[in-house]
Each structure stands twice: as C-alpha cells, then as structure tokens.
Amino acid sequence: MARKINYCFGIMIAGLIMSSCNPGATPDNEQTEADTAVAATDDGFKQIFDGKTLDGWEGDTAYWRAEDGSLVGEVTPDRLLKSNTFIIYQGGNPKDFELKLEFKITEAGNSGINYRSEVFPGVPHALKGYQADIDGKNNYTGQNYEERGRTTLAYRGQKVTIPNTEGKSEKNAWTAAVVDGSLGSSDSLKALIKSNDWNTCHLIVKGNHLQHYINDVLMSDVTDDDTTHRKMEGLLGIQVHVGPPMQVQYRNIMLKNL
C-alpha cells in the first residue's frame, strides 16, 4: 500500500513540474479562446450577425436595432404595429441548412424565425413561409407555423407529415396534416423552455424534412410532401408580431449550409 501511495505521489510531483515549465498549458477538458474560434469555423457554421450593427440585414429600424451583442426587436407604446414586421437576412436564399441561435423574449412577446420564405407583396418587410414560432408565454414556442400560408403545420410535440393532397386552414391549423407520432406532450416540452431568459434554438432543414429544437430538445418534426405549397429554398428572417409592447433578443446567430 505504501509503495502505491509513493508512486502516485511521484506522478503528482512530476505533473506539477511539467505544469511549471509550461505555464500556458491547459487541462485536456478546457479550451482556449483560440481553440473555440477554430471549432466555430471547423464545424461549418458562419456567424451572420456581427452583434454590433445591422449590416447584412434589412428591416424597419423603428423596431430593430443592434445592442450589447444582440439583435433586438422591440414594440413600444408609441410605436405599435399594424402588421407583422421582419428583419430579413440579405446573405442569400438558404436551401438545406442548419441555424443555431439564442433568444430571450418578454412575457407579452410574440416572435419567430422564418425560413424558406418569400416577400409578401404590398406589406413592408413582410414574409410568407415556414416559421419556428417563439412567444413569451411559451404557448407556441417550438411549433412549425407557416406565416401567411397554411398556418400551423405541427404543434409542439408532434411529428407530422403533410401529404400531397388538398387541405385548408381551419382553426389556425392545416387540416391535411397527419400526425405520425409524438415527441412528448406539449406541456412536458414547455417545462424545458425558460421564461424571460436565454434559450437556444436549432433548426435542421434538409429536403422536405423540417426539425425545430429548443434547448437541444426536438419540439416539432415536419415532413412536407405537399408539392403545391412547400418551398425548398427562400429568405431567412426574424419577426416581431402585432400585439402589445414587447421585446425579443437574438444573439450568436450561426448558419451552416448543407
């Protein structure tokens, strides 16, 4: 027993000597800032918001600004909205992609991330297309909603197929949608979303398969076989919704084309 203790003690002393000779060394489970920067580029993601300006984005600056590293959308009592407004990414029309970001929204807030969308004519800064829904009360956060289109495609907790058949929007949901499975109850998934605090959102959009993750948990899963209405590429934008005064913040917005 004494021999084993002496051996371990010797190993410890040797490790201390090596660390003193190399004061810049870090433990294996820690990353330096340089390591983190390399990882951020090696995984294929590109930062599409610089945290300081609205460069590369277009929207109504009465409602959108860059502040403290965040893209901020805000509705104030003296600037209420008449229609939903978006700030739109100007870097192309993503087709197959992954999007990662963090968001924080006030309780009265209503927002969302539009993708594979198109400009809706006649309304300034309006989009039509798929949306990862986000709201302050977390009643809808994580669901798949088609803005100015088929409306709700999948509620939170649903795995859905949209068949290539006729349908209509009824009670704010697409009647043709077929629920194939469950990802968990809406309430159990809601419990994983933080109120008035930072959450992560990860969208994986490939072919006709659309997945919305919040805090690394799959919240909705849509396979869109509806060749009449689906879109395979389009604009990316972030929404501020008509309603009471509110604020939403987005940061660390990262895009990877697949």
Rank of each mutant, 00 (worst) to 15 (best):
T228R: 11
L258T: 10
K171D: 15
P23M: 04
R116G: 01
V179F: 00
Y140G: 09
I214M: 07
T227Q: 06
G129R: 04
I48Y: 01
L16C: 06
H125N: 13
F45G: 05
W174H: 01
K46F: 01
E58Q: 14
K104N: 10
T32A: 06
M18K: 06
A154Y: 07
T228V: 14
T85L: 05
Y7M: 10
T151G: 13
P163K: 00
K190T: 15
L192N: 12
A191F: 05
Y155L: 15
W198P: 02
E107L: 12
W57M: 04
D224E: 02
A40N: 12
G243D: 09
F49N: 05
G207K: 01
N257D: 13
S117V: 08
I17T: 08
E170W: 03
N84F: 03
Y250Q: 09
R251K: 14
Y213F: 11
A126K: 14
T26A: 08
N110F: 12
Y89A: 12
T152E: 04
D224F: 00
T223E: 08
D68P: 01
K52I: 10
S19F: 15
Y63C: 02
Q31A: 09
N252A: 11
N252D: 15
V217P: 02
G136L: 10
V248H: 08
E147S: 03
E33D: 11
T85E: 05
E102H: 03
G91S: 11
F97G: 01
L255G: 02
Q143A: 13
Q158W: 07
T85W: 06
G243P: 06
P124L: 04
Y7C: 08
Y130C: 02
L235W: 06
T165F: 00
N164W: 02
S220R: 06
D28E: 14
E166I: 02
E107N: 15
K100D: 14
L258N: 14
